[in-house]
């Protein structure tokens, strides 16, 4: 994750501007690169001291599944990074309830502590965001 830490220098002084950023993760972790590259943006946003929330919906809930074993498919298991987010002061993780339940998962299956929101609560959360990036 160190390769993408360039470019964080500010072009103008925006210190003090804190916006609410929500990153919506909707894809399974390894079939496409979206999950991994989303995580890279999330980590960079932490360097900007923004108010960051992560949302996991649809197949995106699989990103947090315990016991990811990726060796056989030749991919790096990046799921431990989600546990490290706390160290970057990224502590607001939300899972969409019906997505989780539709996949037979409970919070016990997930590698991090999350808040489970139903669709109305999720809509309210997104309504109050300044920037929503969906991957």
């Amino acid at each position: 994750m160190t390769e993408s830490t360039g470019g964080i220098e500010m072009e103008e002084d925006m210190s003090g501007t804190v916006k609410k950023f929500a990153f919506i993760n909707r894809k399974a972790p390894y079939g496409t690169i979206y999950a991994l590259e989303s995580l890279e943006v999330v980590l960079i946003s932490a360097a900007f001291d923004q108010d960051v929330s992560l949302v996991f919906a649809d197949d995106g809930v699989y990103q947090l599944k315990k016991g990811q074993a990726t060796k056989a498919v030749g991919m790096k298991n990046f799921s431990p990074t989600y546990r490290a987010l706390e160290g970057y002061d990224i502590e607001k993780l939300y899972v969409e309830k019906s997505s989780m339940e539709a996949r037979g998962l409970t919070t016990d299956d997930l590698i991090v502590d999350v808040e489970v929101l139903d669709s109305a609560e999720m809509a309210a959360l997104l309504e109050e965001q300044d920037v929503v990036l969906s991957f």
Partner: peptide, 21 residues
Amino acid sequence: ISGLGQLVESGIRSDRVVTFG
């Protein structure tokens, strides 16, 4: 070519960020 910080910076600076994907 630049870093991901440029995306976050644009999010901070813009009134709206629109994603195409």
